[in-house]
């Protein structure tokens, strides 16, 4: 095994698997172009080939030198402390990765499951709105359950979940809770500064983007969130 660790094999497997997937998918658009003999798939396939070579080179490098940095690389310049932080926080285990990816599924569950329950993807459908409200409530409860003990994992997931909810619940109803959630995940526990900073940031966003720059932020689709969002926009503009 040389200096190889299981993580190195997973990394190489990921890249080679990605190459295989991209190569197989390239047959979907493998069409001739009259004036260009390499066709639409020539360039991406060349990149895929180089990716596979680089992935194998990386695997050989790990086999020979383990985690040693290449001599040509200015390593100190790229060392932003993220690897060290991950190591110090014991966030490099397979269990950590699996549970993180499991939590990251939450936003995607919200994007797919309500449509599946309601049996429709029609945006104005009342049944779909009800399904979305119920699924959102359950998923928010799950997030609240995990937030105290899995801060980094929830931090990775929370913005994606926020983005997934935006279309239905709107920026104006969600942003205050999002601000408080992020502050909490960064270790802030004092209620008064949290509320004060939330009001400051939210006020700044509304004044700057809604009142001054007229940026139309999402108001949501589901009642009463849609009415709240529209009311805020009407008052400010």
């Amino acid at each position: 095994m040389g200096r190889l660790r299981p993580g190195h094999l997973v990394e190489a497997g990921f890249w080679l698997g990605l190459c295989l997937f991209l190569y197989v998918y390239s047959f979907e658009f493998d069409k001739n172009i009259e004036i260009y003999k390499f066709g639409a798939s020539g360039w991406p396939r060349a990149i895929i080939l180089l990716m596979a070579i680089a992935a194998i080179g990386q695997l050989i490098h790990h086999y020979v030198k383990g985690d040693e940095t290449s001599s040509q690389i200015i390593s100190a310049a790229v060392d932003d402390g993220s690897e060290e932080a991950a190591h110090a926080a014991h966030h490099e285990t397979v269990k950590w990765y699996l549970s993180t990816f499991a939590l990251l599924a939450i936003p995607f569950i919200y994007m797919r499951v309500p449509e599946w329950i309601a049996g429709t993807s029609e945006p104005g459908d009342a049944g779909l709105h009800t399904a979305r409200l119920i699924v959102a409530a359950i998923l928010i409860a799950v997030v609240v359950y995990f937030i105290r003990h899995h801060r980094v994992r929830v931090m990775l997931m929370l913005p994606l979940f926020f983005a997934a909810l935006l279309e239905d619940f709107g920026f104006y109803a969600l942003a205050p809770f999002f601000i408080i959630g992020v502050m909490y995940l960064f270790g802030e526990r004092r209620p008064r500064p949290m509320v004060l900073i939330m009001a400051l940031i939210f006020g700044f966003m509304l004044t700057m983007f809604v009142k001054i720059l007229y940026v139309g932020l999402p108001v949501g689709n589901i009642e009463p969130f849609y009415s709240i969002g529209s009311w805020v926009v009407t008052v400010l503009q």
Binding site: I33, Y36, G39, I47, A54, A55, Q58, T69, S70, Q72
Partner: peptide, 28 residues
Amino acid sequence: VGAKTFWKGWLSILIGLMIAVVGLDPVG
């Protein structure tokens, strides 16, 4: 320059090139 190893530097650049491929091809 910029990644931990030369190979990771190339993989970073190639993944960027691959993202740029998504969409319509520039010739046909």
